[in-house]
């Protein structure tokens, strides 16, 4: 008796969301099968890999990251250097300096940086804020104004500040809104509904479902993504069909396994390799669970994950 292959093809699909403009623009989502299940149906838009840079630079990072950007004089230079990699699909600029509890850089300075980065690269841009809800709301409005026509994605609008961000980014300046929830399908859906009610088209929303490093409660990430994917594809839930983007780098490079020095943990071996492995393992698990894009920091992680995607699609 020959093997009868099971097939799970769904009539519903994840939204296809365009980022950037021109010949290097990318599409997130669009698939109607489970992650990498190319044997069920063709996957038109492979998951994308973004390189994270920060307006505070990477001075305290491992050699592989600082070394890569060593010859860069400005944030725009860093963006350009990362964007030149074939394995990089988009650039993710973190406006860390804006943090009121940190450097508290004025919004105008961040806008200037964002504009310079955008002008320096020909790949799509994702803007990450400083994680302060109020500052991000002001920041995103001004950056979106400066980047009109660039079709950038802003991470993220949260329950606390979605109103002003969605109105500015999604409605006034017609770019893409990142909706960030904290690893819970109901919260994710509720935020998508709220942002849609403001008038933002569901097809202009990308979800950040929240993330964790492998080993740090990652089971919640897996199950949330599994359930969101199932609701989107098999139940045709239009409020959960937004593609998912996962910032892997921040979580991966802040856990003990990545920050303990070799002096502290001699038997653990190279700190850099531990961080790279953590970033790679977390990213691969996010992609296998349904992320349409991951944001990474180390050039070696970017190369490996990009290759993994090519091998699987």
């Amino acid at each position: 008796m020959p093997f009868k292959k099971p097939v799970q093809k769904f009539s519903a699909a994840i939204n296809a969301v365009e980022l950037g403009v021109g010949e290097n623009k990318i599409v997130l989502g669009g698939q109607n099968v489970m992650p990498f299940y190319t044997f069920d149906n063709e996957i038109a838009n492979p998951p994308k890999v973004g390189a994270e840079i920060s307006d505070m630079g990477f001075e305290d990072q491992v050699q592989g990251i600082t070394g890569f950007y060593a010859d860069c004089a400005s944030v725009a230079d860093m963006a350009k250097k990362a964007a030149a990699l074939d394995s990089v699909d988009f650039i993710c600029l973190r406006l860390e300096s804006a943090d009121p509890n940190g450097k508290n850089a004025p919004v105008a300075d961040c806008v200037h940086t964002a504009k310079a980065v955008s002008d320096a690269i020909d790949k799509p841009l994702v803007i990450i804020g400083c994680k302060n809800d109020e500052k991000d709301a002001v920041l995103f409005e001004k950056v979106a104004e400066a980047l009109q026509g660039k079709n950038a994605l802003y991470l993220s609008a949260k329950e606390e500040n979605y109103k002003s961000i969605a109105a500015a980014v999604g409605l006034a300046y017609r770019q893409k809104v990142g909706a960030e929830s904290s690893v819970d399908i109901n919260l994710a859906k509720q935020l998508n509904v709220l942002i849609s009610q403001i008038g933002v088209d569901g097809k202009s929303i990308v979800m950040n479902l929240g993330s964790a490093a492998a080993g740090y409660g990652f089971e919640y990430v897996v199950s949330t993504m599994d359930r969101v994917g199932a609701a989107a594809l098999s139940q045709n839930d239009t409020m959960l069909q937004m593609p998912v983007i996962t910032p892997v780098s921040t979580e991966s490079w802040s856990v003990k396994e990545s920050i303990a020095t070799q002096e502290d943990m001699p038997h653990w071996g190279s700190q850099e390799q531990r961080g790279v492995s953590m970033e790679i393992v977390t990213a691969a698990a996010d992609l296998a669970s349904g992320s349409s894009a991951v944001i990474l920091r180390h050039p070696a992680s970017i190369e490996t994950i990009s290759k993994l995607i090519k091998e699987l699609i």
Binding site: G269, V276, S277
Partner: peptide, 20 residues
């Protein structure tokens, strides 16, 4: 098996194979 691979992969496994 290296510590670098193990710390991440075993951590992932420990998460995924917990009873929800």
């Amino acid at each position: 098996m290296t510590y670098a691979t193990s710390l991440a992969v075993h951590g992932l496994r420990q998460n995924v194979f917990t009873d929800p």
